[in-house]
Write a protein that binds this DNA or RNA. Structure first.
Lengths: 219, 219
DNA sequence: TATATCTTACTGACCGGTCAGTTATTAATT
DNA sequence: AATTAATAACTGACCGGTCAGTAAGATATA
């Protein structure tokens, strides 16, 4: 009879956790793709970070491309849904709402994970036409509509200049996304880098003056 | 005696043009890297487009990475130098100058070549620390100084709000670069895409209101 | 002017490493 | 015992970089 002392129950070399794997693999993909970019990233590395073997990754995702697509989908949609919820629930002046939306969107974007994701999306989109379509419909347009909605609210109250919203709804995303990326990446080189607060307040100040009908009213 | 009728001078299979090769190869690199991104681009393709063989590329550039570096350097520096020249030569109101600078920078950025270049730079910079340093010093900082200079001129004349320039100098590049990229890439998906003129005028309008002390004065 | 000699710009087949994706096999769970 | 989650060894395409060889064209010689 083989010695089976109580403490020596041989721990299984691995566990079967089919429900948890996909999310774990996507999270690992965020890390690995984020650091290396799509082309350089190795499925082997994603697997290692996720704590599984390469074969397991292919058990849950058809291909490297499919994994990338799923990653972008799940991560971005979550961020946008949150912002939409906030706008729906908020009431008050257009200005207050706008300032708070900018602040929240910026804080979402400034994380390493999100700036990396944005970088990847912009550089890889041309190679994934199907994902590009999805991204345009479900991200660009939704974000634009969200901002436009905020601007319309302030415009209806006479707080914001009429007519500006056509471009202004597009411009805010550009300002937010690009500023967050610059702050994140170039901070280390920049002796006179702005602090996070300075960046946010500067951004709000510039954009607010851009859209307000009567900027002279102090905050 | 072999028949050598006047018209049948056998054309050489290739010519020796050592002075012209580097520029031709860089130009080909702009096309190929631009379409495929750094990692996907094949030196074979660059060579084909340049009309030479792969070996020739390695005759003039040490490696794929070195070719990429040279490409970024030559192409971006040219664009910035032009803008600096313009600001030096111009006199007139700060507002006029700013509007004209925005217009010119936008027109420079909106070409496929330049948006592709910007895309590549942003996605590849993390993998080329040496190039990142160069890019920050010679592009980011120079551009920021250029805009700051324009803003300072208008500020001194009382045209622009004081204090805004800290962030505003950074924000303009973001707005320009990102807007040009969005326009270029997503135009095809966007049923209500802005025309080029609408984009430029919208951008100018938003930014101008952002920095002007008395926006009410009509253009 | 014709031809021989030399230099070097240029070519393209090849090598070796890398990595997406597959498959034969093992082990956890029911 | 049957099922299926998970592994690990394997394959083959692909591509950056090399180098032995080729030919353009310049220079020297007759």
């Amino acid at each position: 009879m083989p010695d089976e002392s109580p403490s020596s129950a041989p721990p299984p070399r691995w566990q079967r956790r089919p429900e948890a794997r996909p999310e774990e693999i996507v999270e690992a993909a965020m890390t690995v793709f984020g650091q290396s970019g799509y082309a350089r990233a190795k499925i082997d590395d994603v697997a290692r970070v996720a704590g599984v073997s390469k074969g397991t990754v292919y058990l849950y995702f058809d291909s490297k491309e499919a994994l990338f697509r799923e990653m972008v989908r799940t991560r971005i949609v979550a961020a946008l849904a949150e912002a939409e919820q906030f706008v729906r629930d908020h009431d008050g002046s257009g200005r207050e709402l706008l300032v708070e939306v900018i602040r929240r969107m910026y804080l979402r974007m400034r994380s390493d994970q999100m700036t990396q994701l944005a970088r990847m999306v912009h550089s890889e989109l041309p190679h994934f036409p199907e994902l590009a379509r999805f991204y345009f419909d479900e991200v660009i347009l939704r974000a634009r509509r969200l901002v436009a909605q905020v601007l319309a609210r302030g415009e209806a109250r006479g707080e914001f200049r009429p007519g500006a919203s056509g471009f202004a709804a597009r411009g805010l995303s550009s300002l937010l996304v690009h500023t967050a990326q610059m702050q994140c990446f170039f901070q280390r080189f920049d002796p006179q880098a702005l602090t996070e607060d300075q960046a946010i307040e500067g951004l709000i100040d510039l954009y607010l003056h851009g859209v307000l009908a009567h900027p002279s009213d102090r905050t």
